[in-house]
């Protein structure tokens, strides 16, 4: 008989992750399980975005996409993937994140109660502003930037900018009315938030200032209730295979966004090696703080973990 899995969806129609990856994946799940598992997309998100982990854990819905960064302190170890200067290319980092998580991080049990089908990143946060190209640390001085998350807030402060913590839904108003000078944002989202004309200066930081991890997760009991062969079939099309498709979709979105900005005559610059070196020095405390937190959560050598992550990213990037 058929098992119905209720999917709490918060991605709008037309959004890349939903259209290009999740919906085809839902169809494939039905196919590879010979129709025994069917995923039912609920018309509206169950609960709200920050609550999605609990939604799956308590079975308000079975399947969710949750953002670990929305509940600070809970998924500290996972934040390794969100550190500065890891990767600015989701095509590389998304599938690698899933493999790295399973190899090094899963054993800490941060997702107890929710089975992670795929752990991945979307586009990295890059710098967009309406004042000037950012060519040195001095150029950051006093610029008011919207900050999407705590590590970005810390980074902006260290760079001398003024971080303003506001919800993403207010980005357009903040930028269009000129309350802020800029925002840290995934490049891919710039057209969706209609910011093309509002941020004439884009600065690409190689390795990125931060990444955002997302998890496709399913209620653990629901997962265990599926037949072993169905679990296996679903696992095969999830994990890093799923993540790779997300990464490709977002990398495409990033490229399109930058192309759009360039075509409109806006400035899109990549930070010079000198500036990156300087930024690495200035942003060192972000990494140091994470190492402290990870130690407290029982990671013996967090520095080694980060080194390994960067080495794997470097190796994978060479292939691209």
């Amino acid at each position: 008989q058929t098992t119905v899995i209720k999917y709490s969806n918060w991605l709008p129609v037309g959004q890349a992750m939903r259209m290009e990856v999740i919906e085809p994946w839902i169809a494939e799940v039905e196919k590879v399980t010979a129709g025994r598992v069917k995923i039912d997309t609920l018309p509206k998100v169950v609960g709200t975005l920050p609550a999605q982990f609990d939604v799956a854990r308590d079975g308000q819905a079975d399947l969710v996409v949750f953002i670990p960064g929305y509940t600070p302190n809970r998924f500290d170890i996972l934040e390794a993937l969100q550190m500065p200067f890891v990767s600015d290319n989701p095509e590389v980092l998304a599938p690698l994140a899933d493999r790295f998580f399973r190899k090094h991080l899963a054993s800490y049990g941060e997702f107890k109660g929710v089975h992670p089908l795929s752990v991945y990143v979307v586009s990295p946060g890059q710098l967009f502003n309406n004042k000037r190209p950012l060519r040195s640390i001095a150029d950051f001085k006093g610029l008011k930037f919207r900050s999407p998350q705590p590590s970005a807030t810390q980074a902006l402060t260290l760079l001398g900018a003024v971080p303003v913590n506001k919800p993403v839904s207010e980005t357009y108003e903040l930028m269009s009315s000129g309350v802020l000078d800029g925002t840290l944002m995934p490049p891919e989202s710039i057209p969706a938030f209609k910011l093309n004309d509002l941020v004439p200066y884009a600065t690409i930081v190689p390795g990125a200032i931060y990444n955002t991890v997302l998890v496709l997760g399913i209620n653990e009991d629901k997962w265990k209730s599926l037949r072993a062969e169905d679990r296996e079939a679903i696992t095969r099309i999830s994990g890093d295979a799923f993540a790779a498709k997300i990464g490709a979709a977002y990398a495409k979105g990033d490229r399109a966004a930058f192309d759009g900005l360039r075509k409109a005559g806006k400035s899109v610059e990549t930070a010079s090696p000198a500036l990156v070196d300087e930024m690495k020095k200035v942003l060192a405390p972000v990494e140091k703080d994470w190492i402290e937190k990870a130690k407290k959560k029982g990671v013996a050598d967090p520095q080694k973990l980060l080194d390994e992550l960067r080495a794997e990213v470097a190796a994978a990037s060479r292939g691209k």
Binding site: G47, A51, D58, Q60, S169
Partner: peptide, 23 residues
């Protein structure tokens, strides 16, 4: 429709997210 555990969890989620909201 869904049972007690999901309903209780839902009530908590909704209580927080219709009260502790900046906007």
């Amino acid at each position: 429709l869904n049972g007690w555990t999901p309903a209780l969890s839902m009530a908590a989620t909704i209580t927080r997210d219709s009260t502790l909201v900046y906007t």
